[in-house]
Structures are given as structure tokens and as C-alpha cells.
Design a protein around this nucleic acid. Structure first.
Lengths: 140, 140
DNA sequence: GTACATGCAAAACTTTTGCAGTATG
DNA sequence: CATACTGCAAAAGTTTTGCATGTAC
């Protein structure tokens, strides 16, 4: 039978089984919005074993279903990837409500080229996180 | 008596005492080069208590003496800040030898402005890490 | 039916804390 | 000589692992 949910399809195509715990973890992550830690997911899905939560989140991270977000203070949390898994993107995190918006930037290429020229490095990948306040929180 | 070492002066000016454990931690971090974790420092300074290593590294992080570097795989390590503590800068990390170079970029401002316009966010701070290969490793 | 996945509990780490003793400024 | 700092050991928190059992395909 065909699988409707795109994420579940990703799992199926990768040869991974669609189990109740995996569906539960996915479902709760969707409910958590913004971003979440392993502990958040664990608390939201108490019927799933601790180890399975970690194993499932590791799997989803490898598959690009969730992505790591580094906060201002250095803590790292996760978020369901919005666009197609694998697409390169960055995050803007609101210090007020915690909302995370994804964006991609072409202008960044110039910056990378400039740094490569100045440092002699050949740049392969990068990570950019922005911190600020979203439109809604700015009006409060 | 005047303190010659700039980092020790920073500590002294902040009202912090120059103790043997703090000097030892600083000295070993200098010897570790590139970047290091709390465990690396702990192993390099076995005569200093575990808790003191963590307390000292936390203090130095707050004072800007060391800065956090987020690696490609999401792990975070530390590095002695090269330029004046507090100056905003970014890192380029070599996947070959682990060398970390610091840089600052003016062009990034344009990117931030563009993202702000498109997302409605007001950007306060940011974090940018680049990953690649340094000139030396590229020639190997 | 078989390989993959899970749950549980224990283990392995990492970081923090309480407190009595020590040493800096 | 007051008090900031340290070491130790215990606690707290987080992620991993081993293994018997369960289940998706």
C-alpha cells in the first residue's frame, strides 16, 4: 500500500520500517513546533522508550528529516526540516517566542568566496544561524 | 606588581584572582592549539580538579578569552580567542588538520539585511562557521 | 519466517554542586 | 585576614549499549 505522508515515504524508501514508535515520535515532533530537544520529545511521547527516542531522532537527523539548530547560548535543539530534506538552508531564531524561520541566501556565496581568497581555505560547507526578534514579537 | 600576560591582566582587571590552577588551565590550553574540549584540558592538566577545569573554562568563556566553535558534525569545542576578546568574528575549520582560522566579514551585513527584509525579523546577532581545507592540507 | 526494531535497565559520559579547607590580594 | 577559589566526592543530567522480546514486511 502506498504511503501518503512524505516523511513516512522517505523512511519507507530508505528501507526503514514504519513502526508505531517512529510514527509517534514523528507525530509529537510535529506537535512541538518551533524546535525541541530529545527530552521534549521524550516527555511528549512517554509511551516510547527513551532509547528509541534517541535512536529515532538520530535516524531522522541522518535522513535530513530534522535538522540541528544552534541557539544563541550554544545549546543545540532540533526542528523538522521545512523544505525538501537535503536542501541547504539556515535559520533565524526569535529570542522572544522561539520561532525558527528557514532561509537560503545567494549573497552568502560572495562572502564565502572572499573568505576563501583571504584565508587560503577551500570552503566545502558552512553553518549560519541568525538571532533576533520576529515581526510579531517586535510589535509587543 | 604589573601583570605581563594580557589574558592574566584581563582576569586581574575583572577582579578575579590569579591562582595556580587558572594559570595551569590557561597554559595547557595554549599548548593544545587548534581547538579543544573540556576533557582535553582536563587530561592536559591532571593536577587540576575536574570541577575547577569546568569552572575556569566557563569563566574564560564569559570573559571572551576562549570562544565556542561548532564543528561540522554539531559537536562544540573551544579555542583561545586570537584577536581582542569581545570582537565579533567567525571561524573557518580545516577538516584535514583541525586548524581554525578566525575572520570577520563586512559583506555579511548585506546578507543579514536581506534576510531581515524578507523574513520580517530584526537581527541582533549571528553565528557563522565555515568548513573546508586549509592551504597546507589542500596540497597534500 | 526473518531481519529489523523496541523496551528495559544498566552503563558510560559529561557537567554541576555542596562543603570543608586553602591561599590570593 | 576576609573571601574568592579549590579539590573531592557525590549528584544530576544526558546519551549509549546489551539483550531478550516483539513485529513489520
Amino acid at each position: 500500500m502506498a504511503v501518503a505522508d512524505p516523511i513516512e515515504r522517505t523512511l519507507a524508501l530508505g528501507g526503514y520500517r514504519l513502526t508505531a514508535p517512529r510514527r509517534a515520535v514523528l507525530d509529537r515532533m510535529r506537535g512541538l513546533g518551533n524546535h525541541f530537544t530529545a527530552e521534549d520529545v521524550q516527555l511528549a511521547a512517554p509511551e516510547v522508550g527513551r532509547a528509541t527516542v534517541f535512536r529515532t531522532m538520530k535516524l531522522m537527523r541522518d535522513l535530513g528529516i530534522i535538522c540541528q539548530v544552534v541557539l544563541d547560548d550554544g545549546a543545540t535543539v532540533y526542528q523538522l526540516t521545512e523544505d525538501d530534506a537535503g536542501e541547504h538552508h539556515h535559520h533565524v531564531i526569535c529570542s522572544g517566542c522561539g520561532e525558527v524561520a528557514e532561509f537560503s541566501s545567494d549573497g552568502l556565496e560572495d562572502v564565502l568566496g572572499d573568505v576563501a581568497r583571504r584565508t587560503g581555505f577551500e570552503i566545502d560547507t558552512h553553518r549560519l544561524e541568525l538571532y533576533g526578534r520576529c515581526g510579531r514579537c517586535r510589535r509587543l
